[in-house]
């Protein structure tokens, strides 16, 4: 479903701030794969997701989604294939617009926007039903401005928006990191529910090793702009945090990274 070949990205090339963020990343996701991504700060996790989403062009390599080469497509055109939830709850929704307006915008992802009504009566009913499933009481607040919602509510809404039109690929960029533990757990379980229900091919970055182990059928760990570990199947199911740290040490020949990972 997703195929990355030798992706390279260097920021501020040729300056003193030069940073090789992605250093030849190749990765293939099968349809329905739920891959968790871990790694320390600056390992290239978010850069990888942004490369796939098309926030900026990559320096080298190619990106295919469901067989379509999207390497040269701008962000808004790739959006046709991709649902996204961001780390900052403010990023994924328009605060000054109503809940139903946000959903209606998401409903038209990948379509040409014309002079037809921006939202219809039938849609409203549909959104009310969908919001009920989230169980956050949002179904009675369709016309509330999203800016009035809590961070957790906004992330849950963004998740709903990302999956409203079934995406070929769901990108979750530490979408629970800015939430308190209780809310984070709620949003994560909603994520699991939606991914299972729609059998979505998913890439989820997390800072939390336990979450990375508990969710998904495959786990990759990034280090210095490369994939240092790639664990799936039975091995992934039996994985513990200790295993993961040991494997990471072997793969990178580094032990100071342990602290970095655990602390972050």
């Amino acid at each position: 479903m997703l195929e990355l070949q030798n992706i390279c990205k260097t920021f501020n090339a040729g300056t003193i701030n030069e940073k090789r963020a992605l250093n030849g990343v190749s990765l293939t996701l099968k349809e329905g794969d739920f891959v968790t991504v871990i790694g320390g700060n600056g390992a290239g996790k978010s850069t990888l997701l942004n490369a796939v989403a098309g926030v900026w062009p990559v320096d080298r390599g190619s990106i295919l989604i469901d067989g379509v080469d999207v390497t040269r497509l701008p962000e808004h055109k790739r959006a046709k294939y991709i649902g996204r939830v961001f780390q900052d709850p403010m990023t994924g929704t328009a605060a000054t617009m109503q809940i139903e307006e946000n959903l209606a915008l998401a409903r038209r992802r990948g379509q040409r926007r014309t002079l037809r009504p921006g939202i219809t009566r039938a849609e409203r009913e549909e959104y009310r039903e969908l919001l009920k499933i989230l169980d956050l009481g949002l179904e009675d607040r369709l016309t509330s401005k999203v800016g009035l919602l809590s961070g957790g509510q906004r992330q849950a809404l963004t998740l709903l928006m990302a999956s409203l039109v079934k995406p070929k690929l769901l990108l979750l960029d530490e979408h629970t990191a800015a939430l308190d533990p209780k809310t984070a757990a709620k949003v994560l379980s909603a994520t699991e529910q939606i991914v299972q229900r729609d059998r979505l091919t998913t890439l989820m970055i997390t800072h939390n090793m336990r979450d990375a182990i508990a969710h998904g059928n495959r786990l990759i760990m990034m280090y210095e702009g490369r994939i240092a570990l790639d664990i799936s199947g039975e091995e992934k199911k039996r994985l513990t945090v200790e295993d993961l740290l040991a494997k990471f040490g072997q793969a990178t020949g580094s032990d100071e990274a342990d602290d970095k990972l655990l602390l972050s």
């Binding site: 701008p74 962000e75 808004h76 959006a79 990023t91 328009a94 617009m97 915008l105 998401a106 038209r108």
Partner: peptide
């Protein structure tokens, strides 16, 4: 106008 990042993520050519 409200959120360019969100708009682009929803496929809007900002």
């Amino acid at each position: 106008g409200a959120n360019q990042n969100m708009a682009r993520a929803q496929g809007i050519n900002t």
